[in-house]
Amino acid sequence: MAEVTFKGTPMTLVGKEVKIGDTAPDFTVLDNSLQQVKLNDFKGKVKIISIVPSVDTGVCSEQTKRFSEEAEKLPDVKVFTISMDLPFAQKRWKSENGIDQIDIFSDHRDANFGTNYGVLMQELRLLARSVFIIDEEGTVRYTEYVSEGTNHPNYEKAIEAVQKITS
């Protein structure tokens, strides 16, 4: 299992770690209109799934903005962020930050994504910072469980993984 800390404190991750080559587990999250969204809704598309504890914090905000910028350069790739924030807060954040290239989905209701991808931090009931790249067939092609929750993911490696799939 991935080892993750948050502000230096070790966290217990709930669920099974997802590995490269695995079939991506399905999940159910909520969009900003409280409608259910599933991974299968994006079947046939390459997906970048960016996971943050809360979009209302510095690193999470920067991560979401960075992947939004990358989405502009990757028109055939579905890019979205998942956090435990309430859908209303996500919608407000998107509006305040002019984000329209990506969706932000909420796992607050039942932590389905968090447990299916092994990123639910039991002690905080927040999602551990991570990135998953899933190809059109639903195979996991890249994973990063960021070892310290206050650090940025490796954006360049994630984008390289997408480019290998799409080129």
Results as ranks from 00 to 15, higher is better:
residue 150 T to F: 04
residue 99 I to A: 02
residue 134 I to S: 04
residue 41 D to W: 09
residue 131 V to E: 01
residue 15 G to H: 07
residue 51 I to A: 00
residue 51 I to F: 01
residue 11 M to K: 05
residue 41 D to L: 10
residue 22 D to R: 06
residue 61 S to P: 02
residue 41 D to Y: 10
residue 110 D to L: 15
residue 19 K to P: 08
residue 136 E to D: 08
residue 106 S to A: 08
residue 4 V to D: 05
residue 107 D to H: 10
residue 134 I to W: 04
residue 48 I to G: 05
residue 5 T to M: 05
residue 101 Q to T: 08
residue 76 D to K: 15
residue 38 K to A: 08
residue 39 L to R: 13
residue 61 S to A: 06
residue 65 K to A: 15
residue 9 T to Q: 09
residue 119 V to N: 01
residue 74 L to A: 10
residue 52 V to N: 03
residue 166 T to S: 08
residue 54 S to N: 00
residue 165 I to P: 01
residue 163 Q to W: 13
residue 42 F to P: 08
residue 103 D to S: 13
residue 19 K to N: 14
residue 66 R to I: 02
residue 140 V to E: 03
residue 67 F to M: 09
residue 81 T to Y: 01
residue 82 I to C: 08
residue 30 L to I: 00
residue 61 S to E: 02
residue 39 L to M: 11
residue 63 Q to N: 00
residue 130 S to I: 11
residue 165 I to L: 10
residue 49 I to H: 03
residue 101 Q to P: 01
residue 69 E to G: 07
residue 51 I to Y: 00
residue 158 A to F: 02
residue 40 N to H: 06
residue 155 Y to S: 06
residue 135 D to F: 15
residue 104 I to L: 12
residue 150 T to R: 14
residue 63 Q to S: 00
residue 52 V to A: 07
residue 88 F to V: 10
residue 5 T to N: 11
residue 90 Q to Y: 01
residue 49 I to D: 03
residue 23 T to H: 04
residue 125 R to S: 09
residue 115 T to S: 12
residue 166 T to L: 08
residue 3 E to N: 14
residue 108 H to K: 11
residue 67 F to D: 02
residue 96 E to R: 15
residue 99 I to K: 00
residue 162 V to S: 07
residue 6 F to N: 12
residue 52 V to K: 02
residue 68 S to G: 06
residue 42 F to I: 08
residue 14 V to C: 07
residue 142 Y to D: 07
residue 143 T to S: 04
residue 164 K to W: 09
residue 89 A to V: 12
residue 12 T to K: 09
residue 65 K to M: 14
residue 117 Y to S: 06
residue 64 T to W: 02
residue 21 G to Q: 13
residue 105 F to W: 11
residue 47 K to I: 04
residue 54 S to Q: 00
residue 151 N to P: 11
residue 166 T to K: 11
residue 142 Y to M: 09
